[in-house]
Design a protein around this nucleic acid. Structure first.
Lengths: 336, 336
DNA sequence: GAGAATATCCGAAACGTTTCGGACTACGGA
DNA sequence: TCCGTAGTCCGAAACGTTTCGGATATTCTC
């Protein structure tokens, strides 16, 4: 592997000059620069980024910390789309992305900041972390530039991007109310997700404004999976068989709910209207197709990467970025 | 950031000793080792992998080169599942994964090997590259340990993993023939994918063995997208309206075909049976659910990572690994 | 008690860059 | 003639590790 030294020797100049020539500095004669570039090519030289990182203290990589990037998660396009968003922006820059493995037990000995510092990423994008994660504070308070996806926390070096979950849920609630539903249940995510809280308050607000009674016994928590959605739907309808609509904090749970209810003989949307959240790929293909709140998932990742690079390259301040959301009415919900 | 030097100074030993203590060498007294480890902790030390990589000439990272990891590709779970497979294996090791950005025009100036050498990955997993990619040979012939997904080429440092596409297609053909179909069309992928060739020959073989005539005019090429599947299906049925079954080289094309045909008034499966390939997530949810050849996509990535790490850590030889495949009969196909 | 083996430690080089500070030449102006 | 300046170039240190070869002190063997 040819190094800068080899070039220097072959071209008959010093190491310094080679470095400066290759990096476009002005104090090197154009002729020598030409010669250097040519010999570099002839030696099939490519720079050693590791050596460069060591002295520059910059690795030009950003870490992508996706907790739960596992086999099962392929169903949920959410994190995949976030990832492609990150990748799409990163490919416009010269940052590379390194995937952190966080699921293994081995990693749990190390805090996130340790992970980042060891791998010497310049910054990190974090997605899917739970609010009860012991290391969340550490990374928000820490010194490593970081942007969180769907976790509304801002620190000295930490910004976040999310959609307006409260507003989205508000729209969902509004829509159901205006469709004539007056007895509505909600299947929320677990309490350790920030989005759960926001989606609940947004929905509650809509109910209140529409003068619809909405009590705690009409809320059931799942964990964002299909099965939990099914379970929650059944307990809700057992508790109050007069429910005519269900708002679910994730599409996957909504799909689970649909399956569970249909198995019990309920017709959707005739008996029960279902509204989901996320607009995952499946929601369009499932039967009946799912009414849902779409968020710009790709944008989530894209904006996260953008903010991070801005912090890294232009000394940008960490901030809050919201991506747009939108109610998509399909066939799982109906006027009453 | 505390370095090994700081530890050495504080603990009153040499740099060498600190290094050897931390790395578990035997020629350091247990007491001093304890002291060193303690001071390391007290200084909140974490090793600088970059410096280590520089001297060891190993970065403990593997590159993941997925051409076309973009927004659109989220629909096709294929590469996502491959990726989680890679990630799942990697998380058992201490290798990290770096994602290479290959879609941008900027990158195209650089060959894959240049990319790899610059980023100093120890090895690379390549997926989704086309057979007409000018750099394919370079990487197969090259010196960088590499394993290809779904590209049957072996080199000095290059192995591959795929499923037996010919056998899978053979089964598909066999199944359709035994279901009583005698006039069958095929929608293949574009000619620049290895799998296309294999799937065609496997299917042809089945047709021949069953004594079914299968001519070139019953084959139409798409490019693995939904739209191309739709287009291909329509031309095939225009050309020969007596066709009763379609074998598609990808689920996405199969889904496109179903939509296109249904729009033209064909009933599926009553009028036309459809068989896909890949068993992507959607195939289970689409209506009617899709009969397809499942490959162990997750296994593809998992085995690729396994082979690569074996080559890297245990001097394993590059080889060929096949993952299993399986015919999954659902509701898009029917006995005649 | 001498020599050998063992246990424990350390100095210094090396990995491939970047960059600070200075050095040398040639040339113009006073 | 001398000085200042611009244009080019280079030596050497620095980044944070690992590791080779050796040094010293201690223990063992006969």
């Amino acid at each position: 592997m040819a190094t800068i030294k080899d070039i220097a020797k072959k071209a008959g100049v010093s190491i310094t000059t080679v470095s400066r020539a290759l990096n476009g500095y002005s104090d090197v004669n154009e002729d020598t620069r030409k010669k250097i570039i040519e010999t570099a090519k002839s030696l099939n030289y490519s720079p050693n980024t590791i050596a460069r990182s060591l002295v520059m203290k910059k690795s030009r990589t950003i870490g992508l910390l996706i907790s739960g990037l596992m086999r099962e998660s392929a169903k949920d396009n959410f994190m995949i789309e976030v990832m492609t968003g990150v990748n799409d922006f990163a490919s416009q820059t010269d940052y590379d992305i390194v995937l952190f493995n966080t699921n293994s037990s081995k990693q749990r000995e190390k805090t996130y900041t340790q992970l980042c510092r060891e791998r010497k990423v310049d910054g990190v994008i974090i997605q899917g972390i739970r609010t009860d994660d012991p290391y969340l504070e550490e990374v928000v308070e820490g010194e490593i530039p970081c942007v969180l996806v769907d976790i509304p926390k801002i620190g000295r070096y930490a910004g976040y991007v999310s959609s307006d979950n409260a507003a989205g849920s508000f729209e969902a609630g509004n829509y159901l109310a205006e469709a004539g539903h007056t007895n509505i249940g909600m299947i929320n995510g677990h309490e350790y997700a920030f989005v759960s809280k926001e989606r609940l308050t947004g929905f509650q607000k809509a109910m209140m404004e529409k003068g619809i009674s909405f009590q705690a016994d009409h809320i059931e928590n799942g964990d964002f999976t299909e099965e939990s959605g099914e379970r929650a739907a059944l307990t809700l309808l057992e508790r109050d068989p007069a429910i005519t609509a269900l708002f679910c904090a994730s599409d996957l749970m909504a799909i689970g709910a649909m399956n569970g209810l249909r198995a019990k003989g309920y017709r959707i949307p005739e008996d029960i209207s279902i509204v989901g959240y996320d607009n995952i790929l499946l929601s369009r293909y499932v039967q009946p197709s799912l009414t849902t709140i779409a968020q710009d998932t790709h944008g989530l990742g894209y904006e996260a990467a953008k903010m991070l690079v801005d912090m890294l390259d232009h000394d940008g301040k960490p901030r809050r970025t919201l991506v747009k959301h939108e109610l998509i009415v399909r066939n799982s919900s109906i006027m009453r």
